[in-house]
Computed example of a mutant assay.
Amino acid sequence: MTNGGPMIQPLILSGGSGTRLWPMSRPEKPKQLLSLTQAETMLQLTVRRVDPQMGFAPPILVANAQHADMITAQLAHVGVDDATLILEPVARNTAAAIALGALAAPSKDSLLLVMPSDHVIADLPAFHQAVERARALAIAGWLVTFGIEAETAETGYGYIRMAHVLSPGVRAVEHFVEKPDLARATAMLAEGGYCWNAGIFLFRADMYLDQLREHAPAILAAAGEAMRQAQRQAGRILPDSAAFAHAPSQSVDYAIMEQAKAVACAPVRCGWSDVGSWDMLHQISASDTAGNSIQGNVLAIDTQNCLIRGGEINVALLGISDLIVVVHANDLLIMPRGQSQNVRQIIDRLAGNGTP
């Protein structure tokens, strides 16, 4: 991956709570720390994408402080013992999290490959090729985002409208589109020139910090002070809690990417998914001849097109179709396929009174 240029510094964001995959994903152990698509966890799979044997630098991870020991154990399980772990004392969204990573980068012009820890990328060669296509522009000071070539009119993703070609396989960004309704998503797909916004970026650390200084100075000030007062111990950085709490909670798209001038997009088709719902997990998981994706102690008779996660108890299904059934500890989730984006209603109700 070095290709004669500077080594790329992975910056992996692992602060999400993954509530849409309740009841398995919970604040104390969110989806990036779970084995959902393969035997390894989402975080372990993400780290493997940027293996040092491929020419990447040891990763920097920005994560929730309460997950520190689990993350360290999971990294050790896949042979990663040289990562830098930045432990957020409070969650302040992606703009501030990336700021912490940029401030901790080995040098001001370190080339940061920013990736969420809970996404699927099935075609690694295609992804690595897109990173290579973007490298020269990122070195030159552009903020590069990786757009997923849109195949369907999805309403759960933001979109990127691309403009003229900057270099082979990389185009200027005209504007970003918030998650659209179905009519607009369908129109954009028919028009062409739009990609899904995957939240994966490549840019120099100093260029990102410069953009924060211009467009979101309060985030830079809070992150900078938190890092100046941070405690450091054996590969872990603990930013100062009081200082970091002053950072406005904004996404990197809202704070920077939608404001900056030199923004580029490298479109790629790499088998990407954000695994943002049980329906999405069903789509990307292996299924039997009846269309069922099954894990755990499950007996399914005359059952079709279901996602079933059985946990440690026995689950038997007879004569049903198009359901999502998830068992975890003392919780059971049952709902029709196509409704999993509404799991938030359950989370809100449980947060309100503690019972279903």
Rank of each mutant, 00 (worst) to 15 (best):
L350H: 07
Q66A: 11
M24K: 13
A130Y: 01
P116C: 05
R349E: 07
D253R: 13
P89E: 05
A300C: 09
A122N: 06
H246R: 14
C270R: 01
R48I: 07
E151T: 10
A185G: 04
L166K: 02
V90K: 01
V263Q: 02
D302E: 15
A185W: 06
T37E: 07
D51I: 10
D331V: 07
M70W: 12
L332M: 11
S249F: 06
A226K: 01
E214K: 14
S251Y: 07
L137W: 01
Y208I: 04
M70N: 10
A136M: 12
G271S: 04
I301V: 14
R309A: 10
L299Y: 07
A97G: 10
C265E: 06
G224N: 06
Q250R: 15
R92M: 05
H67T: 02
N93M: 14
A198C: 11
L87G: 02
A218V: 08
L43N: 00
R232W: 11
D240K: 10
V170S: 00
D331Y: 08
M42I: 09
C306W: 01
L220P: 00
R213P: 04
L45D: 15
Q53K: 14
L238T: 12
P267H: 03
S277N: 10
A262F: 13
A57S: 14
T41E: 07
Q44H: 07
A163Q: 09
G15I: 00
Q233H: 15
S340R: 00
A39H: 13
L124K: 06
I320D: 09
P336H: 08
F176T: 02
T84C: 08
L332K: 08
I86L: 09
A91Y: 13
L318F: 09
I346Y: 11
Q339V: 08
A190N: 13
M335D: 06
T155A: 10
L317S: 05
Y159W: 15
A130W: 00
I160S: 06
V343I: 15
D288G: 10
R184D: 09
A300S: 12
P89C: 03
T186L: 08
P336E: 12
L61N: 00
S117V: 09
E151G: 13
L45K: 11
Q345E: 05
G276T: 03
S117E: 00
T84R: 10
A57I: 03
V170R: 00
I60K: 00
H328P: 01
V275T: 11
A68Y: 05
W272L: 01
D331A: 14
V114W: 00
A163G: 11
G147T: 00
